[in-house]
Design a protein around this nucleic acid. Structure first.
Length: 560
DNA sequence: CGGTGAACGTA
DNA sequence: CGTACGTTCACCGA
């Protein structure tokens, strides 16, 4: 069983169930938060639920802070790879049942009559040992919620057993990933503080003033288009949103290109003014269409906070994802992200995190010694006898699988200077080519056969190479994501008493919204948390992680 | 109407 | 120069 005090929390509709020390209480969600808070204050149990997004959300919305969790869906993704983690799937896999035997939900039509029979109404598990096919509707009966919560507890216990049986780190990773999933619910609740007026100014600079009518919007659009079209006589009817027509437009201007992609057109900026105008148009059009007034109105609340859905891991290596621009806001809009009155941001980003993660994952003692430096490329360059820039390109090429460029000689130098680290990358690449699954350092299963499954390894060299590159990258990227989440969970726990909120997680960058007079202290704790989380995550490996941490008022401040 | 690819933003 | 993700647009085929 999961060590320490454990409690289960399950919510369906406006009713929730709490199971603790063998007893169960079923409560309306209005009273649920108070009961959960009472237990948390008394015992700080590890909260078990099917998924934070469904079961923890009402409690999080009531601003109850929970310290520890076991999220069945996240544990499933960690142990078995992929993203699908419905309760029926988690249950089946935890019980060793094949997933293709999971009964499908009744559709409410005549075909239900020929499907497998449902168990009696008070029974959750069917004859085959699976969750009953209609559990989604079944659980909305408050009389069934206790069984539902206890089932989560059962699956969590099986997952814990499987985790400790297969690796010493897995249970710790599951706890950290569960904390990340809970944080995602908090991120959705809190949002990212914005300066609305400043953001509107920045949008206006790209898209023009806010249109009062659809006709005005269309006119503004034509005005933007005309700045490009005026450069080529006789092509004024070109649809700039149609790549084929744009290519014809460029050809008429004497610019013959295979595609109209930005990096293809970049060298032609000086050749013909239409190219520069087109690239400027694309940049502005991105803001006008994706991050314009519609985006602002739809996703920024009356409290001037940008909200979107968060996910604790993607389906590949396990990085966090976010919607509504939280992860891909154009840099030009960043000055609009601003701490609210009386608050400041603490911004911290990990430095050179991927090579440092490689040092941990591979256990390469020589490479680990380079991480003692603030700039690890400096000692690597010294050892290889090359310029820093060459060493950096070589390390990145080794990790990411660059196929062209002049990194060849330095790459050979890496192979002899750091054979253990390079060997790990080579083995990951080879395993990926063979379509074999890999594990991140924290134990996440990364399947490599998930895409291109219909083309088995060995039938297409290009696809084999793509799988190899994916695998080599996933081990590093996924392990880095684990370290980041361990750090973030530690920050969440250690800065809470200061009134700090984590408001953005961006792969290697963390943004906290903190009462102004506590910001300096929060920044110190962010740095301390990195050392603690890295030590715990790496098992005490002699690898140093560094963060660039600063107290700022706008996200755009203190950027490199 | 749903799926696909181009394009581009972020790390 | 690799990997990953989310969003919008135009196009294609049903």
């Amino acid at each position: 069983m999961i060590p320490g005090p454990v409690a289960a929390l399950a919510v369906a509709g406006d009713v929730g169930a709490v199971v603790h020390e063998g007893r169960c209480e079923v409560l309306p969600v209005e009273r649920l938060a108070a009961e959960v808070a009472r237990l948390e204050a008394r015992q700080q149990p590890r909260w078990v639920w099917w998924a934070a997004a469904s079961d923890a959300a009402p409690v999080v919305r009531a601003r109850v802070h929970l310290a520890r969790a076991w999220d069945v869906a996240e544990a499933h993704r960690l142990l078995h790879g992929g993203w699908e983690a419905e309760p029926a799937r988690c249950w089946a896999v935890a019980h060793g049942l094949p997933v293709d035997g999971i009964p499908t939900a009744p559709a409410g039509d005549l075909f239900d009559l020929v499907g497998p029979a449902l168990p009696p109404d008070d029974v959750l598990v069917d004859d085959g040992g699976y969750l009953r096919a209609d559990h989604h509707g079944w659980v909305r009966d408050p009389g069934h919620l206790e069984q539902w919560a206890r089932a989560a507890l059962g699956v969590a216990g099986l997952q814990y057993q499987a985790a400790v049986a297969s690796s010493t780190r897995l249970a710790g990773t599951a706890a950290s990933e569960s904390a990340a999933a809970l944080l995602c619910v908090e991120l959705e609740r809190d949002g990212l503080p914005l300066d609305r007026a400043r953001t509107e100014e920045l949008i206006a600079a790209a898209a023009g003033p806010r249109a009062a009518t659809p006709a005005d919007e269309e006119a503004a659009r034509r005005t933007r288009d005309s700045l490009v079209l005026r450069h080529v006589q006789g092509r004024e009817s070109t649809d700039l949103r149609n790549p084929v027509q744009v290519r014809e437009l460029l050809a008429a201007a004497g610019v013959d290109v295979p595609s109209t992609r930005k990096w293809v057109l970049e060298p032609y900026r000086q050749v013909h003014p239409v190219v520069d105008a087109l690239l400027t148009w694309r940049r502005d059009e991105r803001i006008a269409t994706t991050y314009g007034y519609r985006w602002l109105d739809a996703n920024v609340g009356d409290d001037d906070r940008l909200r979107g859905r968060w996910s604790a891991c993607d389906g590949a290596a396990g990085r966090m994802t976010a919607e509504n621009g939280l992860h891909n806001l154009p840099a030009s809009l960043r000055p609009g992200v601003a701490a609210h009155a009386g608050y400041r941001f603490v911004r911290a980003d990990l430095g050179q995190v991927e090579p440092r993660v490689l040092a941990v994952v591979s256990g390469d003692v020589a490479f680990a010694s380079a991480t003692a430096a603030d700039d690890l490329y400096a000692p690597v360059a010294l050892r290889l006898g090359v310029e820093r820039a060459v060493a950096k390109v070589a390390v990145l090429a080794a990790m990411y699988g660059q196929r062209s460029g002049a990194a060849g000689e330095a790459l050979r130098g890496l192979e002899s200077a750091y054979p253990v680290a390079m060997g790990l990358l080579d083995r990951a690449y080879a395993a990926g080519r063979r379509g074999e699954p890999l594990h991140t350092y924290g134990g996440r299963l990364v399947p490599t056969g998930r895409f291109l499954a219909e083309r088995p390894p060995g039938t297409d060299p290009a696809l084999d190479a793509a799988r190899g590159r994916f695998a080599r990258n996933a081990v590093i990227q996924g392990s880095a994501a684990e370290l980041f989440k361990a750090w973030t969970a530690t920050v969440r726990a250690t800065t809470r008493d200061l009134g700090a909120e984590v408001v953005l997680c961006l792969h290697d960058e963390l943004l906290l919204h903190v009462p102004a007079d506590a910001a300096d202290e929060a920044a110190r704790r962010v740095d301390t948390a990195l050392g603690d989380a890295a030590r715990r995550w790496s098992g005490g490996a002699p690898v140093r992680f560094v963060a660039d941490t600063s107290v700022i008022d706008r996200w755009s401040d203190a950027k490199d």
